[in-house]
Design a protein around this nucleic acid. Structure first.
Ligand SMILES: NC(=O)c1ccc[n+]([C@@H]2O[C@H](COP(=O)([O-])OP(=O)(O)OC[C@H]3O[C@@H](n4cnc5c(N)ncnc54)[C@H](O)[C@@H]3O)[C@@H](O)[C@H]2O)c1
Ligand SMILES: NC(=O)c1ccc[n+]([C@@H]2O[C@H](COP(=O)([O-])OP(=O)(O)OC[C@H]3O[C@@H](n4cnc5c(N)ncnc54)[C@H](O)[C@@H]3O)[C@@H](O)[C@H]2O)c1
Lengths: 256, 256
DNA sequence: AGGCGCTTGTGAAGACGTGCACAAATCGCG
DNA sequence: CGCGATTTGTGCACGTCTTCACAAGCGCCT
């Protein structure tokens, strides 16, 4: 379990073959740290303390230190973390050293927004193909990419090494599209359609459902409203909530 | 889990004054159950077992039963759950009995897609206002709504009882927009900008960052690739598994 | 009426995640 | 060269979440 013994000085990181099998919760936070680190690097920071970085990423500093400790010892006591080195290490662990090719299926309302978004490039991804089943959409050019027919997927997969498939079709078509993606060897899928996908073992699916996010917010809104029914005799209703929330992302922060 | 007693018998499913303080993990899954239930209802189901519903929602059946048990006893042993009743109860708990008004700030690339999406209506929400800071966008009509200037937010808030604010502006503007939303009384925010927001206590923020989702997938892709280097021992590999995975998490089963 | 099969609801155990608190390590400085 | 200030890395305790396993409850059939 506890067997890391880094010489302290990286210098040449060489190959890092040993994937340390990170806790899932840590994996989910690393991208947030990475974003914060890039911000810091752009602002000129060369090192940052766990306190500073955790504030920038919106998490507890002990949690951040524990997360980073899973990658190895890349901090210096009394100083902090080397920003550039840490960026390199996190990108390494996340597999972002190679720019991964993304296939986007379903170029409708949402698909257009995704296809036109230029923010993915800076985060390690490249939209490699746009696909749709509607003949009238095929041929359309968006952001320098031409929409192709979804049945061309095998051809596209042969041209590019597709790492991730994004599904932005209606829910009714999502399972079929997922099957097509899996058939051409895609083993990671991001699904925007509000439905559950069945995929073979070894294929990872993540889902983004905006309505669910809103409904979770609605619950808390509802709860807050029913609490407000209590006497609000002070003006400032700073009733410290007992249990904080801590799901994927709920925060109440303090202003610095 | 000790100090709430349910009368047990619903009888009238009317007012539910006592909010049972659900576990956050449960709250995050209720919307998924709700969606699956609506599907079942549309298909003609009147009752459903925990096994059936959990398959439709992509979760473990014991987990589903425990989740639902927190709402009270709305199932019948030997039979299952009444679909219509369960829908009503979940919508009640989530506070979806009233259609909540959503203000969307930032009508750009992504904002257009959200504004044009007609899927929110069926899930309990109504886009009540579109706001942007760009004068050239103000006045544009999308889906029957006219884009107003973000500085009109106080006026909008006076007209409508805004429940939720959605931020779809560039990250640089997100904090300022959040402040404006909070200033007019919004206490729930869904943030699409890749940045951390500071908000006063009592305000809930949920974040959706597509690049983060992709990066998490990238990590697993990376890990799978490094494992594939292992000998492809045959053995009894393929085990038929219960359909339905997918969710927040991923699944893997590489045994050591 | 009684038994039988099915399904819920939940106790208990274990896995997982979090945050405190502090020893160990490092730097800067006199 | 040693000392104090600072910050990392982590042991530990605690809370939350998941999963199993099964008694209790319900309906149906004989
Ligand atoms: N637009 C939003 O803001 C939004 C918000 C939340 C969720 N969603 C979900 O995202 C998905 C897409 O939404 P949208 O608004 O872009 O819908 P849309 O109808 O505008 O676009 C769907 C696109 O998918 C294409 N398509 C249909 N079947 C296909 C198939 N088998 N293979 C390939 N392409 C196919 C259609 O031709 C169309 O271009 C839906 O599932 C929706 O519920 C969208
Ligand atoms: N488009 C996508 O698919 C996508 C994907 C992931 C993340 N995002 C994020 O979503 C956000 C929006 O992305 P986009 O592609 O729509 O950007 P965009 O530039 O197309 O749109 C941004 C809109 O916000 C408006 N705006 C700017 N400052 C404002 C302010 N202070 N008040 C009100 N409105 C203001 C702009 O006028 C513009 O209309 C960004 O933070 C982006 O990183 C977008």
């Amino acid at each position: 379990m506890s067997q890391h013994r880094h010489p302290g000085v990286p210098g040449r990181a060489g190959a890092v073959p040993a994937l340390p099998d990170l806790p899932e919760a840590t994996v989910a936070r690393l991208p947030e740290y990475l974003r914060a680190l890039h911000n810091l690097a752009d602002t000129g920071y060369e090192t940052v303390s766990s306190e500073g970085l955790s504030a920038a990423a919106g998490v507890n500093s002990a949690k951040l230190r524990k997360d980073l400790s899973h990658l190895g010892s890349y901090g210096t006591r009394g100083v902090g973390y080397d920003v550039a080195l840490l960026i390199e290490q996190i990108e390494n662990v996340l597999g972002l050293t190679q720019r991964r090719a993304v296939a986007l299926v379903g170029v409708g309302n949402l698909g257009h927004a995704l296809a036109g978004y230029d923010g993915f490039a800076g985060r390690g991804f490249r939209i490699a193909a746009l696909l749709d089943a509607d003949p009238s959409r095929v041929g359309e050019e968006i952001n320098g990419l031409v929409v192709r027919h979804v049945d061309d997927l095998p051809t596209v997969a042969a041209e590019e090494s597709l790492a991730i498939g994004v599904i932005a079709t209606p829910a009714a078509a999502a399972q079929q599209v997922a099957d097509q993606l899996v058939a051409v060897g895609v083993t990671s899928i991001l699904n925007f359609a509000p439905c559950v996908l069945s995929v073979p073992e070894g294929v990872d699916v993540r889902k983004v459902d905006l309505a669910i996010e809103l409904q979770i917010l609605s619950f808390h809104e509802h709860r807050k409203a029913s609490l407000t029914a209590l006497p609000a005799t002070g003006g400032s209703a700073l009733t410290a909530l007992p249990g904080g929330f801590a799901a994927t992302d709920t925060q109440e922060a303090i202003g610095t």
